[in-house]
């Protein structure tokens, strides 16, 4: 033990210090950034009413599997999560601000959009203020395992040039 080189002792000590530092940093996770999403008290009836009104007014088409394609104006936008899709298919404008209300229609889902994540507890809604940048697309992905086709539960928001 006595003939151990100095650098080796430093290596052991340094490693131990690094590990302790990493461990000490753990409470910081609790404040991890997921602040962008807020939970809101919106019951299922109000959500459905908002959703139906939005689709009725701003529907511009339909996909092959009957998913409505909706181009809402800036403001309130409703997204329903259900096994294994998000509806409707959204077309938003770059540079405009949208209040995205997302709610699960069946079981626990998750949503990741624009780098923000929320868990979608049935009976509650999650709210995110979203301002798409340049034209292109944004992905909306389910982040909580919700059944065999969970991996297919993703949708692309089309971002259009600002009018």
């Amino acid at each position: 033990m006595t003939d151990r080189c100095l650098w080796e002792r430093m290596l052991v000590g340094g490693t131990a210090a690094l590990l302790v530092a990493a461990f000490a940093a753990m409470p910081a996770w609790r404040g991890m950034p997921q602040a962008a999403f807020e939970s809101e008290s919106m019951d299922a009836t109000r959500f459905s009413a908002g959703y139906d009104a939005m689709v009725a007014r701003y529907k511009v088409g339909e996909t092959e599997d009957g998913l409505p394609i909706v181009r809402p104006p800036p403001g309130d936008v409703y997204v329903a999560a259900e096994r294994w899709r998000f509806r409707p298919l959204l077309e938003l404008q770059a540079g405009q601000s949208y209040r995205l209300h997302v709610a699960s229609q069946d079981i626990l889902h998750g949503i990741v959009v624009d780098g923000h994540e929320a868990l979608l507890v049935p009976g509650q809604a999650a709210l995110l203020t979203l301002t798409p940048t340049g034209p292109g697309s944004m992905s909306m992905v389910c982040s909580e395992y919700c059944g065999l086709e969970h991996n297919k539960m993703r949708s692309l928001i089309t971002v259009l040039e600002k009018e």
Binding site: T15, L19, A22, M26, W29, R30, M32, L119
Partner: peptide, 27 residues
């Protein structure tokens, strides 16, 4: 610390892997 059905619970374990499982194989 966290509700079993919460987002924090999920992220805490993911973080645990990032913090705890990187250094030993590197060394």
């Amino acid at each position: 610390l966290f509700d079993i059905l919460s987002l924090e619970q999920r992220l805490a374990f993911t973080g645990l892997l990032w913090y705890g499982l990187a250094l030993p194989p590197i060394i």
